[in-house]
């Protein structure tokens, strides 16, 4: 217990002073006040985040995070509640734009395009970086219309056959086709929780994004539905880069190749999943995964 306190204090100490000074006038170039343990780079990076800071009003919610998202891999973001992992996730497709007080500094690149630059179009960005939410949120429309929504607004299908094809393919990939193919016109809200979440995944992949962000996609589901989603994530990895925020360390261990551990807005440690779980190098990571807090 004493050790833990020391470790926390150690991690907190350097941040307090700069946080106060940067609260009012945050300088994007302010030097990081801590070092992330492990290698933040990926083999085939699609998204590269460098020195990312997020402020909610005066609150410094994300501090100097560097992280790559690589192709064909699932990266899990773990950490105790309020550590900033969801906030970071939402930065990657600018979902934080909807929160008025939020401000993001630093650089996040999708390939070589800065997603926070003026040239980047949010609509385009979100078509390329899709998102699945914590609670299944199917639209109050039919199952078909739920999946067809994205292709329709983006004009992805030239005609009805093409749209039918996209819908069917997406539902198949989400492993839902066999369950719903006879009732595509029924409302999506009538499905069970797990089916709803798979519908939301199908809705996301119908747009053919390059990256899929998942914000605790299984937290509202029972174990059986969770297992199905996890299998699905593993399959989807063949075609997409996936970032998943999870509260469950078992889930992170099961589905991800790399794991990043966040603590109080900082990326403490990042590395191969089996290494993080078997041989954490930072004291805080160790405390978390051994269940001393969280």
């Amino acid at each position: 217990m004493r050790m833990f306190r020391q470790a926390t204090a150690e991690a907190m100490q350097p941040a307090t002073t700069p946080r106060q000074t940067t609260a009012r006038e945050p300088a994007p170039s302010a030097a990081p006040t801590y070092r992330t343990v492990g290698d933040h780079r990926a083999a085939n990076p699609i998204i590269t985040a460098r020195d990312v800071n997020v402020y909610y009003g005066d609150k410094h919610a994300i501090q100097h995070v560097n992280l790559d998202i690589g192709l064909n891999e699932v990266i899990a973001l773990i950490g105790p509640s309020g550590c900033g992992k969801s906030t970071f996730l939402r930065c990657l497709n600018r979902m934080n734009d909807t929160i008025e007080s939020a401000r993001v500094t630093g650089e996040i690149k999708l390939y070589d395009e800065d997603i926070y630059s003026k040239q980047m179009d949010v609509v385009m960005l979100r078509a390329r970086v899709g998102m699945v939410f914590q609670k299944p949120n199917p639209f109050p429309k039919s199952i078909y219309d739920n999946v067809a929504y994205g292709p329709r607004i983006h004009g992805l299908a030239r005609d009805r056959t093409e749209l039918d094809e996209i819908v069917q393919k997406s539902l198949e990939r989400a492993g839902l086709w066999n369950e719903v193919k006879d009732r595509l016109e029924e409302p999506g809200t009538g499905l069970s929780g797990g089916q709803q979440q798979r519908l939301c995944i199908a809705r996301t992949i119908a747009v053919s994004p390059e990256v899929i962000l998942m914000d605790e996609p299984c937290s509202a589901l029972d174990p059986i539905a969770t297992a199905r989603i996890e299998d699905l994530i593993d399959e989807l990895r063949q075609n997409y880069a996936i970032v998943i925020v999870t509260h469950s360390m078992q889930q992170a261990a099961r589905v991800s190749q790399r794991t990043a551990y966040f603590h109080l807005g900082r990326l403490i440690e990042v590395g191969k999943t089996e290494e993080i779980f078997t041989n954490p190098r930072h004291k805080l990571t160790e405390d978390y995964i051994t269940g001393r807090f969280g």
Partner: peptide
């Protein structure tokens, strides 16, 4: 890039 996503990009554009 994987799974030929340019289609998405171009059509969105």
């Amino acid at each position: 890039k994987p799974n030929e996503p340019p289609r998405t990009r171009d059509r969105v554009a």
